[in-house]
Amino acid sequence: MEDQFLILLNGLSFAMLLFLVSVGFTLQFSVLGVLNLAHGSFYMLGVFLAITVAMFMGNYAGNFWIGLLLAPLLVAAFGAFLEWSLLRRIYIRDVLFQYLFTYTWILIIDDLVLMIWGARYSIISLPPIFSAPVNFLGVTFSSYRLFIILLGLLVAGLLWFFLQKTKAGMIVRAASVNREMVGALGVNTPLLFTAVFALGAWLAGVGGVLVAPLQTAYAGMGLDIIVDCFIVVVIGGMGSIKGAFWAALTLGMLRAFGIAYVPQVEMALSYLLMAVILIIRPRGFFGREEA
């Protein structure tokens, strides 16, 4: 029983990481109407920027926190710049061109990361405060993973509050329903789009920084996470934030229990789930009827 609880917690921490990244992806889509294929590359930028901050600060104990603060902001600024300089030129274009366009960013960002940080695999050390596991509800669990779970829940809560309870959030929700109408009502849509895109990139960056102490960074890790994001939006419903949350949770559990019980086929499980969803409920958990 304790084992299952531990697996559950592991799955939860993985789910929260996945949620942080994929919610940015789905939020960008719901407002801008563009699927950012390079979202995974923003996540990867977050990882490598966190490593750079850690290296820059040397052995200073607070470097993880500074990385967590700084790296996502840099990623968000980079995202805002890309949206402002390039992406807004192709909103009127066909969806195929939009795809091609963000696809080229993967090549450029991935290769730039390879150029700047090299092909070596790097990892940063856990902040000292998390060095010891904690006793949580009767099980001994990594305090860092617990931190990820709490942070993920916090961000989910803040996002919910922002979207449901604030005026800016209401505009974002309105824009996801009808962009033209929101513009006609006097909202500065170009600014709104840049802001939402930056927010999405920021979320990817946060996910990246959080994963940096857990896993070695490599150029190409962006593609692995973007595939997970795809699976999340297919399962949860395209453009749905609630859907992203529950889908990430489902996937996280599936992965954690998969690794524990059927490690050989664990990788295929998420695809299997996606296939089943596509057959029995093609629009996903919370997707709208029209695509």
Binding site: I90, T104, W105, M115
Partner: peptide
Amino acid sequence: LLVFGLMLLIIV
């Protein structure tokens, strides 16, 4: 990849 990425970007 970078070179082709930039070229693709410009062509698109």
